[in-house]
Design a protein around this nucleic acid. Sequence first.
DNA 1: CTTGACCCTGTAGTTGCTACAGGGTGCATA
DNA 2: TATGCACCCTGTAGCAACTACAGGGTCAAG
Lengths: 137, 137
Amino acid sequence: MKIGELARTTGANIETIRYYERIGLLPAPHRTAANYRSYGEAHRSRLAFVRHSRDLGFTIEEIRSLLDLSDHPERECSEADRIATGHLEQVEAKIAQLEALRGELSRIVGRCRGGLAGDCRVIEALGDHALCESPHA
Amino acid sequence: MKIGELARTTGANIETIRYYERIGLLPAPHRTAANYRSYGEAHRSRLAFVRHSRDLGFTIEEIRSLLDLSDHPERECSEADRIATGHLEQVEAKIAQLEALRGELSRIVGRCRGGLAGDCRVIEALGDHALCESPHA
DNA sequence: CTTGACCCTGTAGTTGCTACAGGGTGCATA
DNA sequence: TATGCACCCTGTAGCAACTACAGGGTCAAG
Ligand SMILES: [Zn+2]
Ligand SMILES: [Zn+2]
Ligand SMILES: [Zn+2]
Ligand SMILES: [Zn+2]
């Protein structure tokens, strides 16, 4: 299969596939006589793994480690667990931070009653963190 | 006040201050005879506005518009309200997405019972979105 | 008179892509 | 046979919002 079809069947962008090859996340495939990349099923499932992991928010470096583990099924899987747990914790931390932000922002937005910019409570609130109720960062 | 003191009193990085000046977010300050930047109170409060807005998650372009409004107190403030409301909506959307992610990730992490990478449910789950319960992206 | 803390400019790196520019290939159709 | 079109190639530059140098200048204290 050529790169266009691989892109269609995995939902990845063609440029992204070439990018992954360039950074060594995907192995370089065979080339046809015309120098076109030619992929097989192993490439497809590896790319699916990468895209799915990216959609779940893992970084490229985390995915590199996970792929490495996936390529060595005889190893212990504790590293995979460590990476996934660490990522979950990061997601939870990010949620907590965004919730603090949401609280502050909705308070700020709620204070605007229309009128002139010079009297706007939104602009006032943005200039002075002392008006905030949470640390939010 | 020199740039180091401005950085200390606002919590901003020195490089960041120079960066803001370069992109036109902060006005270029006067220079001393030694070509050092020299800031006053107006610079300090403008930078505080920028940093606080960035901490609240606004983009540089949004902040540019908000500063513009702040510089023209005779205008209507509805644009400020629009920007802040739009940003709040984005934060809420991001929270919703991260919560879906958290759900999926904690399901995935919970499936690992230790052992060999070849049998690991975490690695299996990352390779196949069909095992997911939510669309999560 | 030298040490150290500060300041300057300009450029390149970060993350994870995405978008060209400028070319080559391959198949169908007029 | 020509030619149009979809597809492929490489290499480079751009995005956001910083951050980190390298390689130099300035200034007060000891
Ligand atoms: Zn208002
Ligand atoms: Zn605040
Ligand atoms: Zn496991
Ligand atoms: Zn999934």
